[in-house]
């Protein structure tokens, strides 16, 4: 199989707790369900979580640090998710020094993985220090996750600036945890408001949804739950990533997303 167009996408946000890891897990599983070969890399060394969100924590033998430092073969460190065909996880190290990985090693790792996968999705740690630099090192695209809150939007702006400075200009915004009721009351910024401020292309929106917490408890991402609104949001995003044209989901039947439809069709 010729895999000419492998995409390396980093999921980042600057601020912690906005849903990077949940997003990584959902996009990964979603793409695998679309028949893609996907590897998820957790670069949050010392605070790994992607394994738990995916329910793979008990299968870890080797980790990212082992793989890039040659303590094991890359293939040995990849955990195959038995539930979703084509999905693999490269977990972060938990008990090692967080500076154990270098930018060069990350670049090489991404290049090596490109041969075998359609998508390489990198879960970036919060912050803008070495972990962030490592996470974006091998990426050619970025999804910036934010929520409609001042702190998250501000940090997203900073991250977009840093991505530009690192020549990752292929970046998209994902607005997470939108609460329709609050948006209607004018107590939460809507999609337009956030886009107005950040001036960046949108990849999708994910409504606030209790199912996400239930899914995380079970170690089974919301994207597989057909009843979950957040799952729907993530399914749309994965379709867009794989090249399909999907209109933005309507949260309340109202027309305030109309402008964004237009925005997306341009893609």
């Amino acid at each position: 199989m010729a895999k000419s167009q492998a995409q390396v996408i980093v999921i980042t946000s600057g601020k912690g707790g906005v849903g990077k890891t949940t997003t990584t897990a959902n996009i990964g599983v979603g793409l695998a369900l679309l028949g893609k070969k996907v590897v998820l890399i957790d670069t949050d060394i010392g605070l790994r979580n992607l394994d738990v969100v995916l329910g793979l924590e008990n299968r870890i033998v080797y980790d990212l640090v082992d793989a890039v430092t040659g303590h094991c073969k890359l293939k040995q460190a990849l955990i195959k998710d038995k539930r979703y065909d084509g999905l693999f996880l490269l977990p972060a190290a938990q008990t090692k020094d967080k500076d154990a990985v270098t930018v060069e090693q990350m670049e090489k790792l991404c290049n090596d993985l490109k041969k075998d996968f359609d998508f390489i999705i990198i879960d970036c740690p919060a912050g803008i220090e070495q972990g962030f630099k490592n996470a974006i090192a091998g990426a050619d695209k970025a999804i910036v996750v934010t929520t409609p809150e001042v702190s998250a939007v501000r940090d997203a702006d900073r991250i977009i600036g840093l991505l530009d400075a690192n020549e990752i200009t292929d970046h998209f915004l994902l607005i997470n945890r939108i609460r329709t009721d609050m948006v209607k009351r004018g107590e939460m910024m809507n999609v337009d408001d956030v886009l107005d401020i950040l001036n960046i292309e949108l990849i999708g929106i994910v409504p606030d949804d209790e199912n996400v917490i239930v899914s995380t408890n079970k170690g089974e991402p919301a994207v597989v739950n057909m009843k979950s609104l957040a799952g729907q949001g993530y399914r749309n995003i994965t379709k867009r990533l794989s090249g399909e044209n999907v209109p933005l989901m309507e949260l309340d039947g109202g027309g305030f997303f109309a402008r964004l439809f237009g925005k997306f069709k341009r893609k």
Partner: peptide, 26 residues
């Protein structure tokens, strides 16, 4: 009528802070 709704405050404050952030980061 949403003139005084908190989201407007959020936007105003964000615009202000981002001007500073962007200027200072470069």
């Amino acid at each position: 009528k949403r003139k005084n709704a908190s989201k407007e405050m959020a936007k105003d404050r964000l615009r202000l802070v981002l001007v500073h952030d962007r200027a200072n980061s470069d």
